[in-house]
Each structure stands twice: as structure tokens, then as C-alpha cells.
Write a protein that binds this DNA or RNA. Structure first.
Length: 212
DNA sequence: CTACCGATCCCCT
DNA sequence: GGGGATCGGTAGA
């Protein structure tokens, strides 16, 4: 799982829906373990929500949080082990305009209660630096139009509309930094303090303030 | 700069 | 009915 998370850094995330193509480099991930990991969705065993975590590795585990965000994980087996790697930040490469439109569409899909909020959100997204379009797990979901229907997709299938491509073997192995996972304080210090967040230092796309 | 707060919905010791 | 693997805006030091 550790190795899978590190191997995913520098890999390409590809959304190819036939009309448009979006690609970007994965620069930040978090590893989640099986039922023993109290920060993991698998902590209570297999449920309807987390079923794909218990399936074959290389498939997408997509979940929704806070009523408005979707997040993408890569199941990293072995089967029944239920571990997965959350994609936290992607550096856009191809299809930047499509990503911006997708961010805009999602911003308008939520925020219905107030009148001025969607307009402001649209203005903000319109001027957002490219490096920030897919910075943070919720923004990855928005920029790549991750939907519940993507749950269970085989990310290693070259024909899949949502897929991964390993970084070229010719590339030197990138330098990797690690630290505690984000937003898992509820799991208690033992699990929240494990350094299972990995990133490529220096990327302008890291989530949070300056990548922390 | 830090700290809190609201939005919003599916699944659940 | 409660609460979250989030985000972005606002208030205050």
C-alpha cells in the first residue's frame, strides 16, 4: 500500500469521454488501510458504500462527502484487504479549459440557496490558476467530473473513460515526501498521526496552504 | 495569519 | 437522525 501510493505519484490520471480529454499528473495521495485502520472507510467492514474497496485492485472507489464533493480512490488490494489510495491533487496537463468548465458546472450545481453565491463562485473559478484546478480531493473530483457511476471502474483498462497511466519507466524515480493524513482526527491520534500522505515536493498544486 | 462556519446528501456500530 | 477522507468565505487577532 505504501509502495502503491508512492508509485501513483507522477502517474497520469486520464478522463476521456470521447468528446474531450483531460489529463494530469498525480502529485499528492493518501493511503488508507483495511478494517484495522480507524481512519479508513473500511473500518466497519464491508458495507454498501465501501464495497469496491473489497474488490480487485486497480479499480476506482468513488465516494461522496459533505453532500457536495466526490473523491477518487485507487483500490490497491490484494482482494478483500480493502486498502485504497485517495487522489488528493493532480497537476493539470491536457484539457485545462474542460477542467475549468467542470469546476464551474459543479460550483453552480451546488450553492443554490443564495442568489449571489453562484455568481461569485463562477467568477472565482474563471480566474483560478491552472495549478489549482485539481488541488484537493474534492477539486480533483470536480475537475475530472468524477461521478458515482465511476465507482468500480477498472482504472487500468486502456479503454476506460477514466483511467491511469503509469509514469514512464525512463523517468527517474521522483523524490517523495510524506506526512500525516488530512482530516482524520476523528480516528484518534494513533491512526491520524501515521505518515500515510505522500506528495511530490515543490509542486504548485499541493492541497492546503502551500502544501504544508 | 488562524479559527470557525455553512452548504448539502447519502449511508450508517 | 447524525455525521463525514471538503471547500471557500468571513471574522478577528
Amino acid at each position: 500500500m505504501d509502495a502503491v501510493a508512492r508509485g501513483l505519484l507522477g502517474a497520469w490520471l486520464i478522463r476521456d469521454d470521447g468528446l474531450s480529454v483531460r489529463t494530469g499528473r498525480i502529485v499528492e495521495v493518501e493511503a488508507y488501510g483495511g478494517p484495522r485502520d480507524l481512519a479508513s472507510h473500511a473500518r466497519a467492514g464491508r458495507t454498501a458504500r465501501n464495497a469496491t474497496m473489497f474488490g480487485p485492485s486497480g479499480h476506482a472507489y468513488v465516494y461522496g462527502v459533505y453532500g457536495m464533493h466526490t473523491c477518487l480512490n485507487v483500490v490497491c488490494g490484494p482482494a478483500d484487504h480493502a486498502s485504497a489510495v485517495l487522489v488528493r491533487a493532480v497537476e493539470p496537463r491536457v484539457g485545462v479549459a474542460t477542467m475549468r468548465e467542470a469546476r464551474l458546472a459543479r460550483a453552480l450545481a451546488t450553492r443554490r440557496s443564495e442568489c449571489a453565491a453562484p455568481v461569485r463562485a463562477a467568477a472565482r473559478v474563471a480566474h483560478l490558476p491552472v495549478a489549482q484546478l485539481a488541488s484537493g480531493p474534492g477539486n480533483v473530483g470536480a475537475a475530472f467530473s468524477i461521478e458515482r457511476e465511476d465507482d468500480g471502474r477498472d482504472l487500468l483498462d486502456p479503454l476506460s473513460p477514466l483511467r491511469l497511466e503509469a509514469r514512464s519507466a525512463a523517468e527517474p524515480r521522483p523524490e517523495v515526501a510524506s506526512g500525516p493524513r488530512i482530516g482524520v482526527g476523528f480516528a484518534g491520534v494513533e491512526w491520524a498521526s501515521r505518515p500515510w500522505r505522500f506528495w511530490l515536493p515543490g509542486s504548485p498544486t499541493l492541497s492546503g496552504r502551500r502544501g504544508r
